[in-house]
């Protein structure tokens, strides 16, 4: 079995349907507007980094893509298919999209292996033996094959986050969403997770990452997006974004985190 999920070249795919297409996204929490008319198109194979101050709507944005948050306006298309409120359509879209959370959200009562195989068995209907094979492959890829029979609490934060990445990959998603994957980690564990993500990016995975790791953004991102107050303020390639930000708010944000 091929360890690396085969992905078409971005250039080839660009002529076909975008992996994700967001149009006029509106999100309200009561009277507070978290997203204001957000448009974003992500081509297959593209790597997008979203940054911005806390409360700017960046996490909300990626959580809308797999419907962890309901939207009040606009459309979401994944692989050309419009997302509706129909639970079947929501689950179909979620199968295509993997997500990694700030707090890992591993299932604490299951071993690492069980965390990884539950989805393939229950959702994709893969036989158990095959699911275990898939899980071992991805655990090897995130470099923790020897931890398969431990429980999440026995692992370090960095290891847990790498398991969370492997668990998402076991569903063989077309797109991976990362919601501040290194923010809850001790500093010495940040790099092991970023390296895993860089590794994944080099295999051609379509990725949308909310992160403040600017080194990662420079190395991996095709585009960097800066959000503030629920709007996309600036969108640029990393070189331009860091060296010559167009917008005043981007400059002051970069000044603060540098």
């Amino acid at each position: 079995m091929n360890m690396v999920p085969t992905k078409p070249e971005p250039a080839l795919q660009a002529q076909t349907l975008p992996a994700i297409e967001l149009q006029g996204l509106e999100k309200w929490y009561g009277a507070f507007q978290a997203l204001k008319n957000v448009d974003l198109t992500v081509q297959s194979g593209e790597k997008i980094v979203i940054c911005g101050p806390s409360g700017s709507g960046k996490s909300t944005l990626i959580r809308c893509i797999n419907q962890l948050e309901e939207i009040q306006g606009g459309t979401i298309r994944v692989d050309g298919k419009a997302l509706t409120n129909d639970p079947k359509s929501v689950r179909a879209v979620r199968r295509e999209i993997g997500m990694v959370f700030q707090q890992f959200n591993l299932f604490p009562h299951m071993t690492i292996l069980e965390n990884c195989i539950l989805g393939p068995i229950k959702v994709a209907g893969v036989p158990r033996a095959e699911a275990e094979e898939i899980a071992h492959e991805y655990l090897k890829r995130v470099r923790i094959p020897e931890q398969a029979n431990k429980y999440p609490a026995q692992l370090s934060g960095g290891q847990q986050q790498r398991v969370a990445i492997a668990r998402a990959l076991c569903m063989r998603p077309k797109v991976m969403l990362f919601d501040e994957p290194t923010s809850a980690l001790d500093p010495e564990m940040v790099n092991e997770v970023l390296d895993t993500m860089i590794d994944l990016a080099s295999d051609g995975m379509t990725m949308i990452c909310v992160t403040h790791e600017m080194g990662f953004a420079r190395k991996v991102a095709d585009r960097v997006i800066f959000m503030d107050h629920g709007e996309i303020i600036e969108e640029n390639d990393p070189e331009q974004f860091f060296e010559a930000p167009r917008h005043e708010r981007t400059r002051s944000f970069l000044g603060q985190i540098a």
């Binding site: 962890l68 539950l118 959702v123 569903m171």
Partner: peptide, 17 residues
Amino acid sequence: PRGQTEAADALAYGYVT
């Protein structure tokens, strides 16, 4: 914790699972 439901949802688990 709420994150457990979110992780299950993000992994496309159905209600029963």
